[in-house]
Computed example of a mutant assay.
Amino acid sequence: MEQNEESHRVPDRITLGGPADIVAAVPYILGYHPSDSLVVLGLRDDPPRLNTAFCRESAPADTDADHTAAAESIAETLRGDECAAALVVGYGPESDVAPQVRAVRGAADREGVPVREALRVADGRYWSYVCESAECCPPEGVGYDPSASTVAATAVANGLSAWPSLSSLRDHLAPVGGTRRARMRAATRTAEERGADLLGDRPPRGRDAYGPRFRAEGVRAVREAVAAVNRDAPPQDPGRLAWLGVVLGCIRVRDEAWTLIGRESAEAHQRLWREVLRHVEPAYRPAPGSLLAVSAWARQDAALADAALERVYEVDPDYSMAVLVHRALRAGVPWQGYPPESLQAVWPLESP
């Protein structure tokens, strides 16, 4: 997963009737309100619907070559996804947005995917790069109130939500620091020693050869943590958090936690695994980050799931559970429990 360019599966419940609807819909398509970004929506004709979306974060150091490379990658994907047309929305000042829009329009045109609308959004107004009529698209832009849009109301009614910004989403999962981090380092060393004692003279060969004693203690720790969060008392003690991080290194223990996530319990699991993810040492992030992504997926919060997977990939880009969940999100697979049957055939569970 690249950090500044990500594809998003687009919900099928939003109907776009014009520029104002497009601007109102984007936050619910991405799951957050974008800023200093370029958003590209791919459309199919048969049946008429939004198919996929890209959001590329702008950076001050971006060059024309960067814009061209990104545009070509997006255009190739639009063609590969059999999109018949595209919509482009840039957020930020004209000097930043215009070169990116030009690059995407040119690349998409070369791939045979025409851009039907291209907009710039800033300071509560939008401008069209396609419409030349001063009556509907005046030089000073068109003011809009996304909260008053029927698109926003429809999105919310269908269970969609939007974080205030991408940075707020990332801050929500930021690792703890300061004294708390120092206590976690010490607690992790203690937890690792405890795990080593359970393994005895037989250290694991491979990722899940932990033995029955270790697995039993790990499953017990997971179930106790889930029970605690269901009582609205998530674990906060560094020792318990560090121990959860260590035992989740056992695939069987992690999968036990996965099986406990359901639609009704997903909110509690989301709180639990966020707490663990933010506290554990980096090496132990992949399992709780992936469990958090599953919990968010069950609650239709793809943006949070993506952000959790981003934390995982910072440590282990090949962590199999994260890759599985990422594929499901990109394919638009609806939450079906553990794990989606449609994915089991192509991605078998790891053996104990």
Score class of each variant (00 low, 15 high):
residue 87 L to V: 08
residue 130 V to F: 03
residue 259 T to W: 02
residue 43 L to V: 08
residue 241 L to D: 01
residue 33 H to W: 04
residue 262 G to T: 14
residue 279 H to S: 15
residue 251 I to F: 12
residue 327 R to K: 13
residue 193 E to A: 15
residue 39 V to N: 10
residue 154 T to G: 04
residue 53 A to W: 04
residue 131 C to E: 08
residue 188 T to F: 02
residue 105 R to L: 05
residue 225 A to T: 00
residue 157 A to F: 05
residue 6 E to A: 12
residue 271 R to G: 10
residue 282 P to N: 06
residue 326 H to A: 15
residue 283 A to I: 06
residue 266 A to S: 07
residue 7 S to G: 04
residue 310 E to I: 07
residue 301 D to Q: 11
residue 54 F to C: 10
residue 174 A to S: 15
residue 279 H to N: 15
residue 298 A to V: 06
residue 271 R to I: 04
residue 186 A to V: 08
residue 12 D to M: 03
residue 232 D to R: 03
residue 273 W to H: 01
residue 79 R to V: 01
residue 270 Q to C: 08
residue 262 G to V: 01
residue 183 R to Q: 12
residue 38 L to F: 12
residue 261 I to D: 01
residue 148 A to I: 00
residue 182 A to C: 07
residue 79 R to Q: 09
residue 109 D to R: 14
residue 290 S to K: 09
residue 126 Y to T: 04
residue 254 R to S: 02
residue 158 N to F: 12
residue 36 D to P: 03
residue 352 P to M: 08
residue 272 L to C: 02
residue 53 A to H: 10
residue 115 V to M: 05
residue 311 R to M: 14
residue 320 S to C: 10
residue 40 V to R: 07
residue 48 P to L: 12
residue 83 C to S: 09
residue 304 L to R: 10
residue 162 A to L: 06
residue 177 G to N: 13
residue 93 P to R: 15
residue 333 V to H: 10
residue 142 V to Q: 15
residue 219 V to Y: 01
residue 48 P to A: 11
residue 17 G to P: 01
residue 177 G to K: 14
residue 221 A to D: 01
residue 56 R to C: 13
residue 211 G to V: 09
residue 255 D to F: 03
residue 5 E to P: 00
residue 215 R to A: 13
residue 102 R to W: 06
residue 21 D to K: 04
residue 182 A to I: 04
residue 80 G to N: 11
residue 184 M to A: 03
residue 105 R to Q: 11
residue 346 V to S: 14
residue 172 H to L: 13
residue 291 L to H: 01
residue 12 D to P: 00
residue 27 P to I: 05
residue 137 C to S: 14
residue 255 D to K: 05
residue 312 V to Q: 04
residue 179 T to H: 15
residue 343 L to A: 10
residue 253 V to R: 00
residue 105 R to M: 12
residue 115 V to K: 06
residue 12 D to C: 00
residue 185 R to N: 03
residue 111 E to F: 02
residue 351 S to P: 06
residue 64 D to G: 04
residue 58 S to R: 15
residue 66 D to M: 12
residue 39 V to F: 05
residue 156 V to N: 00
residue 278 R to F: 05
residue 162 A to S: 14
residue 25 A to N: 05
residue 24 A to W: 04
residue 298 A to S: 13
residue 194 R to F: 05
residue 292 L to A: 03
residue 131 C to W: 09
residue 338 Y to P: 14
residue 30 L to Y: 07
residue 21 D to T: 01
residue 345 A to K: 10
residue 185 R to V: 12
residue 74 I to M: 15
residue 53 A to K: 05
